[in-house]
């Protein structure tokens, strides 16, 4: 793999061009651009229905400089499997000679929830594609409804804060571990704040033979409720608090790719976002403690898997 050089990256053609209609400060296009740089050759993108999809393909325009296909919400993986199978078939028939990489982009809704079956099936069948989940932790495209990626305590329009309930009551699904259980060649968690780490992981993902999965935290300005200039700060806080550990699972072997010297309290990550403000009020210390306990337990489990 070539060393990653920002100056050189800036000269490359972008897979996703400017002019799309995503919100100012949205992490998703940052994630997409970083990943497209890692493909290192011809690449085709498949998109699940999502914010990314609707804002980049408004007919008759497109922000994509690469071939791009959107089918529906829950079937991006099956669709990508079809593209990949066609590539193999046409290759075999001598009708295509180019090596084409296939990348799939889905939000947490299209990945953790409605698209889980399609993803699981495609992973088990071993289709050679890179699946990228940009995880903004709720159904943002329809206006901030809870998903199974939404953390405990977060306020969304379907897990609102009221007299009887303080936001979402359930802990989030650990999708990276769900995917790792499929024993595919490469699984990683990444953050746009650690761009070199993210691009390195994407390069690895494109190079393995078989499915690869990247779960990338993707702060959302209206959904998380913060100022648009703070996106990368939020993504970094998620990493520094251990809320979003940066690690990879390569052929079953767990490894931290970055470990904060000392984990910051998760409250720092929560306090920077409007969706958690209700947890910071006096008398709600138990809620906050429960969230810290969740993060601690996840961290301990990861240490065990890494073998530390």
């Amino acid at each position: 793999m070539a060393p990653i050089n920002l100056k050189e990256l800036a000269k490359e053609q972008e897979g996703l061009s400017s002019g799309h209609r995503m919100c100012a400060g949205c992490a998703a296009p940052i994630v997409v651009r970083q990943i497209m740089h890692a493909a290192g050759g011809p690449v085709v993108a498949i998109n699940a229905t999502s914010c990314l999809e609707v804002t980049t393909s408004v007919y008759p325009t497109t922000a994509w400089n690469v071939p791009w296909l959107h089918n529906a919400f829950e079937n991006a993986s099956a669709t990508a499997g079809g593209v990949e199978t066609a590539l193999r078939a046409l290759w075999k028939a001598g009708e295509i000679t180019e090596d084409v990489k296939i990348v799939v982009f889905g939000g947490d809704g299209g990945t953790f929830d409605i698209g889980l079956q399609s993803l699981s099936g495609a992973l088990e069948r071993g289709h050679n594609f890179v699946y990228v989940c940009y995880d903004n932790e709720a159904y943002m495209n329809t206006g901030i409804q809870r998903s199974s990626a939404t953390p405990r305590g977060a306020s969304t329009t379907t897990s609102p804060v009221g007299r009887a309930q303080l936001g979402k009551r359930q802990t989030r699904k650990n999708m990276t571990e769900v995917v790792a259980a499929h024993r595919i060649p490469y699984v990683a968690q990444a953050s746009p704040s650690h761009w070199r780490d993210l691009i390195t992981k994407a390069q690895k993902a494109f190079q393995v033979d078989g499915p690869a999965f990247l779960n990338v935290i993707s702060p959302c300005v209206p959904g998380w409720r913060y100022e648009s200039q703070d996106t990368i700060k939020l993504a970094k806080l998620a990493v520094e608090t251990g809320y979003w550990p940066l690690y990879e699972v390569e052929d079953g072997k767990y490894r931290f790719t970055y470990k904060p010297r000392e984990r910051k309290p998760v409250a720092e990550f929560l306090a920077a976002q409007g969706r958690f403000q209700h947890l910071l009020k006096p008398g709600r210390e138990d809620e906050l403690a429960a969230m810290q306990a969740d993060v601690d337990a996840q961290w301990e489990e990861l240490l065990r898997r890494v073998g530390e």
């Binding site: 296909l69 089918n71 079937n75 669709t79 079809g82 593209v83 046409l90 079956q117 399609s118 099936g121």
Partner: peptide, 21 residues
Amino acid sequence: VPVESEHSAISTCIGAAAAGA
């Protein structure tokens, strides 16, 4: 492609047909 459901069967067909197969 021995898919895991009919939903994925037709979705895979769409991907493959759009790809040029």
